[in-house]
Design a protein around this nucleic acid. Structure first.
Lengths: 354, 354
DNA sequence: CTGAAAGCGCTTACAG
DNA sequence: CTGAAAGCGCTTACAG
C-alpha cells in the first residue's frame, strides 16, 4: 500500500511507518531480492518450496511492488492509454469499463486521453501526450482506430496498440470488431418482414468505416428482397443527434411515403424521433424508427428504441487482452483479429407497416 | 518522448536511439544535473541566465523527464485518481473532461477508478486500488465524496483528496459545490409562475445530500408561494430512469390533478416522460415536466427537457485545482470551498398551466 | 546560487 | 535454480 494502514501489519512484519520493500520481503524469507523479484514477476526457474516461502513473506509484509522502481529499472510503466475522440459518453464509458475490467487484474493502469476530432491538428497534441505519459501501449477506438496517420505515427515510434474498429483488412495490429454489414442487413430485413417497403436510411459519419458497412448492409437487404434502392430514401448524417434531426427532415420531405427509418446509430434515431414528434407523426404507428448501438439513451427514449446491441464493453476487454498479451511478447494464443456478435434488441419504436 | 521520433532531433543533440536524460541536458548546457532538475521543477535560486541556458538545452534535446525516475526519487507518482460510483455516463464523462483539462497542464495524469455502489463491500476493493495505484491524490464525486467511511479511510492513510459534492458543513478537505437548494427553489418558483399549483416532486437517492437539498428547495418555494406541501405530491426516487418511471406512476395515481412534475434529475424526468406517454398525457400540454442536471439526454428527449444546468466540467476542474495546489503544499490562494452557479435551461417540456 | 554524492526500489545481465 | 553487482534517471540532503 502506498501508505501503510494505520496500525501496521502483523507483529513481526517490518516497520510500521514505511511500506515494505523487496528487501524486507527477502530478509523475512531468507532469500535474495532477485528471488523475490522472480516470484513477483512469475518467472520460471524457482522451486516450488522457494516460491511458497516468498509468497508467504510477501503476504506477511503486505508487500506491493513499487511501480516507479519497476518502471525505472525495467523501462516499463505498466500504464496503458486509451485514445479516443470526444463523443458519445455512453459508448466511451463502456469502453473504459471493458478496458479496466481486464487491465486491473493484469497489473496495468488506465490513462484516458480524450481528444478533439481526428484531424491533422490533434496529431501534435497526441505526440505530446505520448511523450509525457510514458505508456506501454494504447487502445484505440473509432475513428482513431481507423485513422491512418495516427497508426503511422504509432508504428513509427513503435508504440504497441490494439484496436476496436469496424472489420477491415489491414494487418497493422490486432483488432476486434463486429460485423456491421450483417447486423444492418438483418435489421433491414426485420423491417422488411414487418411489411415495410419504403425504408429510409441515415448514414453515419463518412470517415467511419462502420458507416459504409452499415449502409452496405441496408442496401444488400433491400436488393435481396427485390426492393428499389432509391437515393431519396438515403440521407447523410454524422452520428450526431442534430445530424439525425436534419437528415430525417430531408427524408420526410423527399420521401413522404416513407414508413420506416433506419438510423445508423441511436443518437441519430433520437433526432428522428424528435422530428417525427414535431411533424405529428406517431412512432411507431405512423413511422417506425430503429437505431444502432443500444446506447444508454435507447431504452430511455419514448418509445423505447429498437436497435442493435454492440457488445462495447466486451470489445474493449478483448482489445485489452490482445494488447497486453502482445506487450508480454506472448505467442498469440488468441486470434489477432476477433469478431463479436451483434444482437437486435426489439423495443417499441418499430411495428408492422399499415 | 518515450520513444524518439524516427529521424531524431537536431543534428547536435544526443544519440538518436534513446531518449535524452537529465545528464544529456546537463552536458549540453554545461551545468550539473542538479541545476537542470531545479529548472525542470521550477525551483527558486537559479539565475535567469542559467535558467535560459538550461531551457534551451532542454528544448534542443527534446528532453522530457522520466516519470518513473522522478517518482522513485521523489516519492511522488504524478498520478491522480478519480473514484466514482458507476452511474450516469454523461455526468462522469464531463467530470473526467474537467479533471483532465486541469491536470494535463500541471503534469499530472488521471487514473479512473469506477466502483460499484458505495457500501461496505467496496471499501476493501478501494483499499486494494489505492495500494497498487500509487496515487498522489484523489478526486471524489457523489456519493463517494459524501461517504464518511471512505473519507475516514483516506484521512487515515493520509491520502489527499478534493471533492465535488453538495454543499455541506464538514471541514475535512476542500470541496466545490453548487447550491442545489437555491436552484430547486428557483425551478419550483418558475413552475409556480407558470400558474401551476399542484406540482409533483420526485426525490433523488436518499444517500445523496443533493437529494435533500433539492427537496428542501422545492418545499421552501411552495411555502413561499403559500401553496400546500402535500405528501401525495412527493414520491421517492433514486436518480435512476426506472425509479423515475415508478415514482411518476405513484404520483399520477395519488394526485391525478397534478399539472407539473419536478424530477430531481434528468434520468428520472425521462422516466416521467415515458410514463406520461404511456398514459396518453401530452407534455407539456397536459403535464409539465422538468429535470435537474442538464445531462446529455435532456436535449435529446422529446420534448426537450427544461432543466437546471450543472457546470460539471468546471466543478471537476476546480476540484482538481484545489487538489493539486494542496499536493504542492501551496498556500490556498483559492477558497478551500467554492460555490458555482446553477442555471435554469428552458426547453419545451414545461408550459403555462391550463 | 551551484554542485558532488548517495540513494529511491526495483530489473538486467551475469556468474556460479 | 539462486544470487551479488551494477544501474535505470531522477531527487534529497548536504556542502560550499
Amino acid at each position: 500500500m502506498s501508505r501503510k494502514k494505520a496500525g501496521g501489519g502483523p507483529a513481526d512484519a517490518p516497520q510500521d511507518e514505511m511500506n515494505s520493500t523487496i528487501k524486507d520481503v527477502a530478509r523475512l524469507a531468507g532469500v535474495s531480492i532477485k528471488t523475490v523479484s522472480r516470484v513477483v514477476n512469475n518467472e520460471p526457474n524457482v522451486t516450488e518450496a522457494m516460491r511458497k516461502k516468498v509468497q508467504e513473506a510477501i503476504r506477511r509484509c503486505d508487500y506491493v511492488p513499487n511501480r516507479s522502481a519497476r518502471g525505472l529499472a525495467g523501462r516499463k510503466s505498466f500504464l496503458i492509454g486509451l485514445f479516443y475522440e470526444r463523443q458519445n459518453s455512453s459508448y466511451i464509458t463502456r469502453i473504459q469499463a471493458g478496458v479496466l475490467a481486464y487491465c486491473r487484474n493484469q497489473g496495468y493502469e488506465l490513462l484516458i486521453h480524450p481528444f478533439g476530432s481526428g484531424n491533422e491538428s490533434v496529431l501534435p497534441e497526441i505526440e505530446k501526450v505520448v511523450q509525457r505519459s510514458n505508456l506501454d501501449g494504447v487502445i484505440l477506438t473509432p475513428f482513431f482506430s481507423e485513422w491512418t496517420q495516427l497508426l503511422d505515427f504509432l508504428d513509427g515510434i513503435k508504440l504497441p496498440y490494439a484496436r476496436v474498429t469496424a472489420v477491415l483488412d489491414d494487418h497493422r495490429s490486432p483488432f476486434v470488431s463486429c460485423d456491421d454489414f450483417d447486423a444492418a442487413f438483418r435489421m433491414t430485413k426485420y423491417l422488411i418482414d414487418l411489411g415495410h417497403k419504403r425504408i429510409g436510411f441515415i448514414k453515419g459519419h463518412p470517415r467511419h468505416i462502420s458507416a459504409a458497412h452499415r449502409h452496405a448492409g441496408y442496401v444488400a437487404a433491400l436488393k435481396a428482397a427485390n426492393l428499389a434502392v432509391s437515393p431519396d430514401l438515403i440521407a447523410q448524417g454524422d452520428y450526431s443527434f442534430t445530424s439525425g434531426e436534419a437528415a430525417s427532415r430531408v427524408l420526410f420531405d423527399k420521401a413522404p411515403d416513407v414508413t420506416a427509418i433506419f438510423a445508423s446509430n441511436d443518437d441519430m434515431a433520437a433526432g428522428v424521433l424528435r422530428v417525427a414528434h414535431q411533424r405529428k407523426l406517431a412512432v411507431p404507428d405512423d413511422i417506425s424508427v430503429v437505431g444502432f448501438d443500444d446506447a444508454d439513451i435507447a431504452r430511455k427514449l419514448c418509445p423505447g428504441l429498437t436497435t442493435i446491441r454492440q457488445p462495447v464493453r466486451d470489445l474493449a476487454a478483448r482489445a485489452s487482452a490482445l494488447l497486453i498479451s502482445s506487450l508480454r511478447g506472448e505467442a498469440q494464443d488468441q486470434q489477432p483479429q476477433q469478431l463479436l456478435p451483434l444482437e437486435i434488441i426489439i423495443r417499441e419504436s418499430a411495428s408492422r407497416a399499415k
